[in-house]
Simulated scan of single mutants.
Amino acid sequence: MGKIDIGISSENRIAIAGGLKKLLADSYTLYLQTHNFHWNVTGPQFRDLHLMFEEHYTELATAVDEIAERIRTLDIPAPGTYKAFASLTSIEEVEGVPEATQMVEILTGSHEKVVKTCRAVLAIAQEADDESTAALVGDRMRIHEKTAWMLRAMQ
């Protein structure tokens, strides 16, 4: 491949990609968590939660691809292993199968953690005048804020 020249310095591309790697790890971990809960939810709210969780993990599947492609656009390799994601994510693993109400609480907290990761990446992107990353991260932040709000409303 030829040398990249998109108006963002190498140092800024590395810093932005570093933040995006954390966002990718958080998003992928949240995808797995949500999919797990979709498969294992039980109780009186089964149908509503089962369908909601499916909507959420489907949206996250698209998101992880967009985030990884942005990292590659910056000419930085994107992480793609469980080991890499585990070392980068701020979302904690859940042991066992929690009750449905706990699933909602856990997912609320996980979406809020992703929002915080988005805020950190957004600041880096804005400082580097990287509108493309800022737009992507801003959209992601809005989606996670709204999802957390909807989950909180169920508690």
Score class of each variant (00 low, 15 high):
residue 117 T to V: 12
residue 121 V to A: 08
residue 126 Q to S: 04
residue 120 A to Y: 11
residue 114 V to I: 10
residue 12 N to G: 13
residue 48 D to P: 05
residue 89 T to G: 11
residue 114 V to D: 15
residue 85 F to D: 11
residue 32 L to S: 13
residue 65 D to M: 08
residue 64 V to S: 02
residue 4 I to H: 10
residue 10 S to H: 14
residue 42 T to Q: 10
residue 59 E to P: 04
residue 43 G to H: 14
residue 116 K to S: 08
residue 82 Y to N: 14
residue 8 I to D: 05
residue 18 G to D: 06
residue 27 S to K: 02
residue 16 I to F: 02
residue 7 G to K: 06
residue 73 T to W: 06
residue 13 R to G: 10
residue 51 L to I: 09
residue 64 V to Y: 06
residue 128 A to V: 04
residue 130 D to W: 01
residue 69 E to K: 14
residue 63 A to R: 07
residue 100 A to F: 07
residue 118 C to T: 05
residue 43 G to M: 09
residue 110 S to L: 15
residue 126 Q to L: 10
residue 100 A to E: 02
residue 125 A to N: 11
residue 49 L to N: 07
residue 77 P to L: 04
residue 80 G to F: 03
residue 7 G to Q: 10
residue 124 I to A: 05
residue 53 F to L: 12
residue 64 V to N: 00
residue 131 E to A: 09
residue 93 E to V: 05
residue 23 L to G: 07
residue 101 T to M: 14
residue 1 M to Y: 06
residue 136 L to Q: 02
residue 3 K to W: 04
residue 133 T to M: 05
residue 151 L to A: 02
residue 1 M to R: 12
residue 79 P to D: 06
residue 102 Q to S: 11
residue 16 I to M: 03
residue 6 I to S: 10
residue 12 N to E: 04
residue 3 K to R: 12
residue 146 K to F: 01
residue 113 K to Y: 07
residue 49 L to R: 01
residue 92 E to N: 08
residue 16 I to E: 00
residue 91 I to T: 08
residue 10 S to F: 15
residue 125 A to Y: 06
residue 45 Q to W: 08
residue 115 V to F: 13
residue 38 H to I: 14
residue 102 Q to G: 04
residue 113 K to G: 15
residue 143 I to D: 13
residue 16 I to D: 00
residue 107 L to C: 12
residue 92 E to W: 06
residue 19 G to T: 06
residue 150 M to R: 08
residue 19 G to P: 05
residue 70 R to A: 03
residue 123 A to T: 07
residue 132 S to G: 10
residue 1 M to H: 15
residue 127 E to N: 03
residue 149 W to P: 08
residue 111 H to S: 09
residue 142 R to G: 14
residue 23 L to F: 03
residue 103 M to D: 00
residue 150 M to N: 09
residue 128 A to P: 13
residue 121 V to Q: 00
residue 111 H to D: 03
residue 139 D to L: 10
residue 37 F to W: 06
residue 141 M to F: 09
residue 106 I to V: 10
residue 82 Y to V: 14
residue 96 G to P: 07
residue 122 L to Y: 03
residue 75 D to R: 05
residue 37 F to G: 06
residue 62 T to V: 13
residue 155 Q to P: 02
residue 105 E to S: 13
residue 123 A to C: 10
residue 16 I to S: 00
residue 89 T to A: 15
residue 58 T to I: 09
residue 44 P to E: 13
residue 79 P to W: 06
